[in-house]
């Protein structure tokens, strides 16, 4: 029996209309409409597109939960085994729509989801971890290449075949690390890689470093004597006893601590929760990592406006970059709302 697939497309590809119809409410059509016809054909009878959902891009992006719920209901109603969305090419809202629907359905229904978009579509960065995204051209001219690639990956997922690397399978890297076996031990592979590198030949790393984003430097503070300065640290300084149980490595949280009235961090009041360096010195005097004492002096001397009454702390020891990024954004938002003008971030 053929696998059953639902295909999500937007108002344009569903033939409803262009930008003027972007508020079109989601509708379910039995069988295939628009690109679903090409997908259906590319699945060559091993799977069939049983229904097509057509939804306006604005409507989907503005009502993500509602649209995801409707798609989930449709998946159940049609007993679908998989969901496909797009290709969205370089249409930003369509990319968001495909990504959000795929990620939500994958999570809610536990079925494979596949979409396709231009690698620079903002939907890629947001949803690549939650679905499989085939890189597509920036316009519908790339339909002919995208559809067979989507069909091939979808069938592999439906057959529950083990996937090779993203490069080999032709989807955008999801940031998922998997264990695998090699014939040669790691030391030999590392030496092989080094020899290739020394010879200036191409080699493929087995452990890609995360790509860090860059931020445009903010202008300097012009009135330091009036500025509120906040302290943030990845050195794990916490009140004695580590009340929030911040982990010594691979931290899963950060802490927010009130230092109103605290002029000095002492061995009876503060400690480090960090498990990646010798804690002796930070436990003796946590000012060695988080310079509260000096900033209080500078505050008294009116060299700075004031030290913000909250500091933020986590342990930067094997902590996931994605977590750190998320916490950084949260902390930044809180500091902004508290009218903090500048931040001193200390790392061990």
């Amino acid at each position: 029996m053929a696998y059953r697939v639902i295909h999500y497309i937007n108002q344009f590809f569903g033939g409803v209309g262009g930008e003027e119809m972007a508020d079109h409410k989601p509708e379910v059509r039995v069988g295939q409409a628009g690109p679903a016809m090409a997908l259906h054909a590319a699945l060559k009878g091993e799977a069939e597109v049983v229904a097509t959902i057509v939804c306006g891009d604005n409507y989907c992006v503005a009502n993500q939960k509602e649209v995801a719920a409707l798609v989930a209901t449709t998946v159940k109603k049609y007993k679908a085994d998989a969901l496909v969305a797009g290709p969205a090419f370089n249409a930003g809202r369509y990319g968001m729509a495909c990504g959000t629907v795929c990620a939500a359905i994958g999570e809610a229904c536990g079925i494979p989801t596949v979409t396709a978009m231009f690698p620079e579509n903002p939907g890629v960065e947001l949803y690549k971890a939650g679905t499989y995204i085939i890189p597509a051209a920036d316009s519908a001219r790339g339909m002919g290449q995208a559809i067979p690639a989507m069909a091939a990956l979808l069938l592999k997922l439906l057959r529950k075949e083990a996937l090779q690397s993203p490069e080999a399978e032709g989807y955008i890297e999801r940031g998922v690390r998997v264990n695998m076996f090699y014939e040669k031990p790691g030391a030999e592979r590392a030496v092989d890689m080094l020899l290739l590198k020394l010879a200036g030949k191409p080699f493929t790393t087995e452990y890609k470093m995360p790509v860090f984003d860059r931020v445009t430097p903010r202008p300097g503070i012009t009135n330091m004597a009036g500025a509120t300065i906040a302290l943030v640290t990845s050195g794990g300084i916490v009140p004695k006893g580590n009340p929030d149980h911040i982990a010594a490595s691979s931290a899963r949280s950060y802490g927010e601590y009130d230092i109103a009235g605290v002029n000095d961090l002492t061995d009876t009041t503060y400690q480090t929760a960090h498990g990646g360096y010798d804690q002796t010195f930070a436990n003796q005097d946590a000012d060695r990592v988080l310079p509260v004492d000096v900033l209080r002096d500078l505050e008294r001397e009116k060299k700075i406006g004031k030290l913000h009454h909250l500091f933020y702390s986590t342990v930067g020891n094997g902590t996931a970059v994605a977590s750190a990024k998320k916490w950084g954004e949260e902390i930044g938002q809180k500091l902004k709302e508290a009218n903090v003008q500048a931040v001193i971030l200390t790392s061990t």
């Binding site: 360096y277 010195f281 060695r288 000096v294 500078l298 700075i304 001193i344």
Partner: peptide
């Protein structure tokens, strides 16, 4: 690494002076 803003081999007063220098540089 274990004492970015300190140096346990110094006297407490010297150590605080060192820390202050670094923080002033940060400002």
């Amino acid at each position: 690494i274990p004492y970015p803003l300190g140096n346990p081999t110094l006297s407490p007063a010297e150590e605080k002076k060192l820390r202050r220098g670094l923080v002033e540089k940060a400002l």
